[in-house]
Design a protein around this nucleic acid. Sequence first.
DNA 1: CGCGATTTGTGCACGTCTTCACAAGCGCCT
DNA 2: AGGCGCTTGTGAAGACGTGCACAAATCGCG
Lengths: 230, 230
Amino acid sequence: MARLPEYLRALHNLAETGNETVSSEGLANAAGVNSAKLRKDLSHLGSYGTRGVGYDVALLIEQIEYVLGLTQRRAVALVGVGNLGHALAGYDGFASRGFRIAALLDADPARVGEEIHGMVVRHVDELPQVAAEESIAIGVIATPASAAQRVADQLVAVGVTSILNFAPCVLSVPDGVDVRKVDLAIELQILSFHEHRKASLTGLPRTGGSALTALPGGLAVTEGQEAIGT
Amino acid sequence: MARLPEYLRALHNLAETGNETVSSEGLANAAGVNSAKLRKDLSHLGSYGTRGVGYDVALLIEQIEYVLGLTQRRAVALVGVGNLGHALAGYDGFASRGFRIAALLDADPARVGEEIHGMVVRHVDELPQVAAEESIAIGVIATPASAAQRVADQLVAVGVTSILNFAPCVLSVPDGVDVRKVDLAIELQILSFHEHRKASLTGLPRTGGSALTALPGGLAVTEGQEAIGT
DNA sequence: CGCGATTTGTGCACGTCTTCACAAGCGCCT
DNA sequence: AGGCGCTTGTGAAGACGTGCACAAATCGCG
Ligand SMILES: NC(=O)c1ccc[n+]([C@@H]2O[C@H](COP(=O)([O-])OP(=O)(O)OC[C@H]3O[C@@H](n4cnc5c(N)ncnc54)[C@H](O)[C@@H]3O)[C@@H](O)[C@H]2O)c1
Ligand SMILES: NC(=O)c1ccc[n+]([C@@H]2O[C@H](COP(=O)([O-])OP(=O)(O)OC[C@H]3O[C@@H](n4cnc5c(N)ncnc54)[C@H](O)[C@@H]3O)[C@@H](O)[C@H]2O)c1
């Protein structure tokens, strides 16, 4: 499930504060989900809880990390060392979560050779060599949208089967290749939508709203963390 | 729906390439979704298509932008002008998608006063004044996780009801406040999970796998763009 | 004017996810 | 040893999202 990483982070926090065990309710709170949901999720990866006690934090971390494939530190290739790429290259959250930036790549000759956080930027056409040197598990695309598809093709060509795409466009990849997208503008627009909806509700409490704003049941925006109680 | 922004982007692309109308299938392809799903989505905001012809691109853009509340350019306050904050501040995708960075805020005195892309960084404690100057619609948190909850509280205190959180932690906010989270590590871990699963399947084709890797029906990871055909 | 090609809008069925509620199990205390 | 409180694991029901398949509607053309 997509919630496993969330649980993992919460578990690490708990481990740091000295907790040995945690109840489903406690962990659910820390991860911001329903406790029944959490129990069902965990039950899917086997039974690692003790009734009356809870889950062993260390054991659970181990199990989740195994399921997520974090037992091996995966190599990440970052393509596009611009505005965003610089920030990503300097992000320590990679290393602390089981990943390692193995290469920085860019197409701009002016950028190639530049050293960022101890890593030298190489040209994107060197991708085959980079992949030969060490197995790239994940490719991160931080180029403009116009170049994203081409970069994706290059990544796929050297055997990368997982891509994280920051460019605002859809990528076409062969079967067996996973693509996940992070699009800032989409997130903002979803928030804007909610703002608009909230404004319509408070502003015109009785008109019923147009068919556009007051949709039947409200437009469901999936995956939202949405208004966790105080 | 959360897919509306995706449609909107595809529509803008189509408009730029001179298309007047688009069929549900065409737009679905451009947005990477099923055509039936797209039609159902669009039908929820009223009927703006013409049978036998398709949808009027310009009209549809207008309608979606209205639903998303993009008719007014919303002001965004960015809190935490560090590594990531700098990249965000320089991102032109804000402006081109209906948003405007109205303020840059940070707690570090060394950062306050710094000028980034024509905007001067102000202290986070000036948030009330900033909010008074102009109505902040959305707050973006790009601070370390340890400060995120505090910043969220400050944002809520000045009336912000939509928050985009880049810090890897769950935020507690009152009812009526929407929070969306972008967590890079989670995205990578989901990809890692798929990598692990793929490796298990090809490596041990017949063992059936442990209960951990070969879950019944496979673990569903929602929202994935996942392997769109060539 | 009528007909066929095309495309939308939607009823329906199916699978998935979510949540409640509770029995079964475990540990602790007496 | 037994009882009691707490917590897990799960069955069942409901809500929800998805996709198929088709009727209704529109346009262009003869
Ligand atoms: N800056 C942000 O905060 C931000 C936020 C969200 C999404 N994005 C998206 O991330 C992408 C990058 O944004 P940015 O602000 O860093 O842009 P940028 O222009 O600063 O950087 C893009 C980099 O990609 C390189 N590049 C171009 N074509 C390439 C190719 N074919 N192969 C390899 N490298 C290539 C360029 O040389 C440049 O260094 C854009 O698609 C943008 O929409 C940016
Ligand atoms: N850098 C990345 O690529 C990246 C990617 C994903 C997520 N993140 C997350 O984004 C957040 C920021 O990352 P970063 O690399 O920019 O870190 P950073 O340390 O470079 O920047 C953090 C900034 O927040 C400021 N800050 C600290 N406390 C504050 C407060 N109470 N109020 C206002 N400002 C405050 C600091 O002064 C600093 O300027 C972190 O939570 C990180 O996990 C970063």
